[in-house]
């Protein structure tokens, strides 16, 4: 039996050697697939995602014309069979995948300037190559990068991360330490939530929690999560700027 997250009480160190407020290594690239309108590759620790964006393009489906005056954001997530510890196929109808798709699409629906593209669709496709926790957060971050690559105007980046709560850490309930950016094994043991913000920590776009946690711990979890989002926004920004510089350089030379 390997050690579990209870070692935190011994050392204030997490299973992978991080402190409570540290993100895993984050790595991202932009324009990874030439064929798509926008694309990105994003890693949060061992969670690895490829994202492609196509559109905005005219809606082809349906007989009657779409009444809406704004673009629709359609999200499709494919989880590779080899991405998890157990090799298993997930069907597209998997409830959890559907819910993630919906969450991502509604988050971006409100952040992208969709009113600029009436009667059209923005299709986001996410391929999960490897999962090690914070899947939804990584997907959101990957989408942000790919949408920027596609040149779709948006009000701000959406940056997301997870926070957990170190259960039964201490005698007293309000002394439970919140943990930033959970990996897969932590997600299985601890209550956690995913938070996504735009404009640093100004506006919360996504806040999802599927596990139960004491009310008293929630505040600390959210405040650490907001801080994490801010850090991630900085990292995303760095990736975008580095990419921009590269593009400019290649144009100049």
């Amino acid at each position: 039996m390997p050690l579990d997250s209870s070692i935190y009480t011994l050392s204030a160190l997490r299973l992978d050697g991080r402190r409570w407020n540290e993100l895993r290594r984050i790595n991202g690239q932009i324009s990874t697939q030439q064929a798509a309108d926008g694309s990105s590759y994003f890693e949060m620790g061992n969670t690895k995602i490829i994202c492609t964006v196509n559109g905005p393009q005219e809606q082809k489906r349906g007989g009657g014309r779409d009444q809406s005056n704004e673009a629709k954001v359609e999200v499709e997530i494919g989880i590779a069979g080899f991405s998890g510890v157990d090799r298993k196929r997930r069907t597209r109808n998997d409830k959890r995948i559907q819910e993630m798709q919906y969450t991502i699409s509604s988050a971006f629906q409100n952040t992208l300037f969709t009113h600029l593209y009436p009667h059209s669709t923005i299709a986001i496709t996410l391929h999960v190559l490897s999962q090690d926790g914070s899947l939804l957060a990584a997907c959101l971050n990957a989408c942000t990068l790919a949408l920027i690559d596609a040149g779709i105007p948006m009000s701000d980046y959406i940056a997301a991360c997870t926070t957990g709560s170190m259960a039964s850490y201490a005698d007293k309930e309000d002394e439970a330490d919140p943990l930033l950016d959970l990996n897969g094994s932590e997600e299985q043991e601890l209550p956690f939530l995913t938070v996504g913000t735009s404009g640093g920590e100004d506006k919360v776009n996504v806040l999802i929690m599927e596990t139960r946690v004491q009310m008293a711990r929630l505040e600390a979890m959210i405040s650490v999560g907001l801080d994490g989002c801010k850090q991630i926004r900085g990292i995303l920004d760095g990736i975008v700027r580095a990419h921009g510089k590269k593009v400019l350089q290649s144009k100049v030379s």
């Binding site: 050392s11 160190l13 299973l15 992978d16 050697g17 991080r18 540290e22 895993r24 290594r25 620790g45 061992n46 510890v85 157990d86 090690d132 990996n183 094994s185």
Partner: peptide, 14 residues
Amino acid sequence: VQKIVRELYLRQDI
């Protein structure tokens, strides 16, 4: 049999 890959963040502040 499962193959588990875990990251390890090595540090100097222990």
